[in-house]
Amino acid sequence: MAVGVALGALVLGITACSGPDGHERSEDGGELTVLAAASLTDVFAEIGDAFEAANPGVTVSFSFAGSAVLAQQVIAGAPADVLATASTATMDTAAAMTGPPEVFTTNTLEIAVPAGNPGGVTGLADLADPGLTVALCAEEVPCGAAAAAVLAGAGVTAAPDTYEQDVRAVLTKVILGEVDAGLVYRTDVASAGDDVEGIDVAGADVVRNDYWISVVTGTDEPDLARAFVEYVLAEPGQAVLAAAGFGSPESAGVDG
């Protein structure tokens, strides 16, 4: 079961790496390609289904990966219509190729441990224990930057055994039980169900990740892309995000 979940996550990762396909417009609908941060994998799939149901004939395809990779793909001219990243810095990277971005949700970090908490982890200080196996995101990606800020705020020097490429890779290692603890988003803990337990991090809400969304410049489907962005910002999208544990955009640190 756990391996199945992890395998699914990895396969998603592989398809994300291969990048979006070219566009093939259908007669009345249209095809939308959305590049979205790895931590949005479950919620955006759900929002995409709802958006398709609300707009018959429209197909939404997603490419989920680390935000920085997505930003690079957009700069390099990937045929995408909408970009959603998990940090302000990564959206700034892609600024030359996007319209004005908007904050659509926020997220905070939590410690994820395998079911049963085999390492007996109780808080951030345990991440400094060299006897425990710990996974963090690399500092180059948003979840890693947030983890570094949270650890610095708590005065903890972590002793990680691996710096993973994106937050889903950390989650996968926790689900498989290969690590005793990992720092991931609250929403990732929720999405993993019974395979993972979450441990609150004191002071985590001080370091908040703002999620930004924007229409990509030069899209073939500007109206449809705009409609998708508004769908995410409005009630239907926000309800899905809230149900998964994401914060409301009003709580964002920066004015969207």
Binding site: A135, Y163, A169
Partner: peptide, 12 residues
Amino acid sequence: VTFAGSLPGVTR
């Protein structure tokens, strides 16, 4: 990256 992870000097 899947089996060994990524730690500078050890597995990266």
